[in-house]
Structure formats: structure tokens, C-alpha cells
Simulated assay, not measured.
Amino acid sequence: MSNETLIEKYFSKSLSPNETLEFDKLYESDSDFKKDVDFLKTVKLVSEKEDDLQFKSQLKSYEDDYSEHDKKTTHKWLKPLIAAAGLILIMLSLNFFMNSKLDEDQLFSSYFEPSKNVTSPIIRSTDNETTVNNAFIAYSEADYKPAIVLFQKAYQDSKNSELLFYEANSLLAIEDYENAITKFEEHLKYSDILTNRSHWYLALAYIKTKQIEKAKQELKSLLNSDETFKKPEANSLLEKL
């Protein structure tokens, strides 16, 4: 049996007892055979975590190619396999590195918490049943869906742009990222005491939706502003991006 077939059967775990003895003997006595096997073991260790079927298919395709073509050169089948396997190993390693480098969900979870109410003191009294007050009561209790409706109505009535900021925070808290982005962008068209803070939350929303370059721009806008809110966190987050 050819060395190449022994190797293929070894990786497909289909060696017979006699073939296993032959394989072990070659592995101990033939340094080239051992080097080829060890290299493919490394490749398979990486590739099976990503696409084991693809690796086995690659082995089978090269074995078939070997069977149909010139068999005079001992490593005619193995050399192109090693070249291709090396490329697979590099690509998988790079893919693993890139994927492990940035975890958008983890970054968002680490940095996001809804903004505190710094606009309107809550008055819990039947004498103050205003839409704004009720909106902030719902917001303070993390009852975000009713808060969104109330903030919308309060903004329509008062045109107080700060309410857009809290509505957007509520949308972000319930994972409605696209609408949160739209609302933060709308708030940034105004100039109030919370405007620059929208850069921070918009950056987080962009991270969550994998729009990293836009997130970087928002963080830079915050850092370049006079706003002190979340500046250390913005520096830290920008470095991670």
C-alpha cells in the first residue's frame, strides 16, 4: 500500500490492524513520512474546529487525483496537499485571530447602561400626572416600552430635544438598535446639554450593529468635544476598536 493511502486512511480512521502496524513502522523509521504526518496533524487540529468535512474532502480529492495520474513520484499527491493545507492553516489562523480580536456583543454589554435621568426630577404624585413625568417614571423603572411611547408624545407636545435622547436610550435598552440609531442621529441635530452624550450611545449602537468605522467617528467626536461624560471610557473603547 502506498504511503499516501496509508496517510489518508490514518486521518479517516479506517486503517486495518495490519495497516496500523505498517503505518507505525513507517512513522518510526521514515523521517519524511513522519514529517508529513505531523504537519497534517497540526493542520487537521485547526481545521476540524472550523470545517472538518472540508479537510477530509480535501484529502480525498488529492488521493483521487493521485490515483488517476502519475504515481512515479512518491510525493506527487502529498506535496500539493501540503501546500494547500499550509494555505488552509494560515487562513484559519488569520480568521481565528480576527474573530477573537473584536467581539462586538461583548464590547456593547461591557460598556452599555442606559443614561441616568439628569433632565427632569421625578415627582410621584397624583398632582403631577404629566406625560413627561410619567415617561421618566417608566424609564427609571426600566419599563422601556411604555417609556418610549410617553417620550414620543411628550416630545410632540413640547419639542424638548432632550427627550429624544431618553427615547433613544430606551430603544437601545430593548435592543431596537436600528431605531435607536435613527433617534440618536436625530438628537444630534439639536444643541442641548445632552447632545454630545448621544455620540457615546450612538457609538455603542454602531458597535452592536458592526459598523465599526462609524463607531470610531462618534467616539472621536465625543473626545473632541467639551463634554466630560464617558471620556475615559471612550478612550478605552476607541483603543479596543
Score class of each variant (00 low, 15 high):
Asp52Arg: 10
Ile123Leu: 09
Leu89Glu: 08
Ile148Ala: 04
Leu6Cys: 06
Asp65Val: 08
Asn95Phe: 15
Tyr206Ile: 00
Glu167Met: 13
Lys230Ile: 02
Ser225Pro: 01
Asn18Gly: 08
Ile122Ala: 03
Phe39Glu: 04
Leu87Ser: 14
Gln54Asp: 10
Phe108Val: 00
Leu81Arg: 02
Ser225Ile: 03
His69Cys: 06
Ser47Asn: 09
Ile212Pro: 01
Ser109Asp: 13
Lys214Arg: 08
Gly86Tyr: 09
Ser198Trp: 02
Asp192Ala: 07
Ile137Phe: 05
Thr5Trp: 11
Ser221Phe: 07
Glu185Trp: 02
Thr131Pro: 03
Ser170Cys: 08
Tyr177Ala: 10
Lys153Glu: 11
Val46Lys: 13
Leu15Arg: 06
Ile193Pro: 06
Asp65Tyr: 14
Lys101Leu: 15
Lys9Asn: 13
Tyr62Met: 12
Pro80Tyr: 07
Leu102Arg: 10
Asn117Gly: 03
Glu28Tyr: 09
Lys216Gln: 07
Asp36Val: 12
Lys189Leu: 09
Leu94Ser: 15
Ala147Arg: 01
Lys231Leu: 03
Gln106Ala: 15
Trp200Val: 00
Asn99Pro: 07
Gly86Ala: 14
Thr119His: 15
Phe55Asp: 00
Tyr177Met: 13
Asp36Ile: 14
Ser14Trp: 04
Ala85Glu: 00
Ile207Trp: 00
Thr5Ser: 15
Leu238Glu: 02
His199Thr: 02
Leu107Met: 11
Glu218Lys: 08
Gln106Trp: 07
Ala83Gly: 08
His75Tyr: 11
Thr182Asp: 10
Leu40Tyr: 00
Ala215Gly: 04
Tyr166Lys: 06
Leu26Gly: 02
Phe108Ile: 01
Asn18Asp: 10
Ala168Trp: 00
Thr126Met: 09
Tyr66Ala: 11
Asp176Gly: 00
Phe96Thr: 12
Ser29Trp: 07
Phe151Gly: 00
Ile90Thr: 11
Thr119Glu: 14
Ala85Met: 04
Leu223Ser: 02
Thr42Phe: 12
Phe184Met: 06
